[in-house]
Computed example of a mutant assay.
Amino acid sequence: MLFGKKKDKKPSKIALMDDKINEDYVEEKVTKIKDQDVEIVMANEEAISEKLSNASPLRKYAELGKIMFAMLKDVKKGSYKTVPWFTIASIAVALLYVLNPFDLVPDFIPGVGYIDDLAVLSISMGWIETDLHKYLDWRLTETEKS
């Protein structure tokens, strides 16, 4: 009768995270991104890349992080122009959230510290996946031209 009996306990903070980190939360943050925030992401590329590479739960996003930074650089140089601002803002939110050590679940908590980072990255990736594929196709075309 493990599942039949209802418990009156309050849910843990981790269980409540689904309510705090959802698409609406991330979308709200994306709509508030400014050019200066993108500059902060670019200035912290090394720290963000290191965190993505060294935190085992985030490691699968290390290559995606490189692609996101490459896209931001090409947009900033003006060589890649077919990316919507929403995509740039989504990348900035995701990477700034990963960089921030004081997020909803602090990263130093073993086992669960990166759950919120994963949630924000996953939500953002779901939104921008098509644009990332378009960017990679463009890069391949540019490489073939060279």
Rank of each mutant, 00 (worst) to 15 (best):
V41L: 04
V112I: 14
E46F: 12
I40G: 01
Y61D: 02
F3W: 13
T31Y: 07
L64R: 05
V105L: 15
F3Q: 12
K7P: 06
G113F: 02
V105A: 07
A43R: 14
M1P: 03
D24I: 15
W138Y: 14
L72N: 04
V93M: 01
L118H: 02
I48L: 06
T82Y: 13
Y61E: 03
T143W: 15
P101K: 07
K60E: 13
F102R: 14
A15T: 07
K51V: 04
A94G: 00
E28C: 08
E45F: 02
A119R: 09
N44E: 10
I67P: 00
K32H: 11
K77H: 07
W85V: 13
F69R: 09
W85R: 15
T87C: 07
E23T: 14
D18S: 13
V83A: 10
G126D: 06
L64I: 06
I33T: 03
Y114G: 01
E129P: 03
E46G: 04
K29V: 06
E39A: 08
S122V: 11
I21P: 00
R139W: 02
E129Y: 15
E142Y: 15
H133Y: 13
T31V: 09
K134Q: 01
V75P: 01
G65L: 03
R139V: 05
V112G: 03
K145R: 15
K51Q: 09
N22L: 06
V30I: 12
L95M: 13
A70S: 12
I88M: 07
S122E: 14
S146R: 15
Y25Q: 01
A55E: 02
D8M: 13
L118I: 06
P110Y: 01
Y25F: 10
K7I: 07
F108V: 04
A92F: 01
L99H: 05
S56F: 12
W127H: 12
R139L: 10
K51N: 05
L132F: 08
V41Y: 00
A43C: 11
K10Y: 05
I14Q: 09
S12P: 07
V98A: 06
I21C: 10
K10A: 11
D103W: 03
M17D: 04
T87P: 00
R139Y: 04
L72D: 06
S122T: 15
P57M: 02
V112C: 05
Y61R: 05
D103Q: 10
V105F: 11
M71F: 04
L118T: 05
K5M: 09
T82S: 14
V83S: 06
L140I: 15
T31I: 07
W85I: 13
R139S: 03
E46N: 15
I67H: 01
S124L: 10
E142V: 15
M71K: 04
Y135K: 04
N44I: 03
E50Q: 12
E142W: 12
I67R: 02
Q36T: 14
E63R: 11
Y135W: 07
I88A: 02
D131K: 12
E63S: 11
K7F: 12
Y135R: 05
S122G: 14
A94P: 00
V26C: 02
N44D: 08
K10D: 09
G126V: 06
K5T: 08
D107S: 13
A55Y: 03
I91L: 04
E39R: 09
D107R: 10
L118F: 02
V93A: 00
I67Y: 05
I48Q: 00
H133E: 14
Y25E: 01
M71A: 06
I14M: 11
A55K: 01
S124Q: 09
N22H: 06
E28M: 09
I67G: 00
S12H: 12
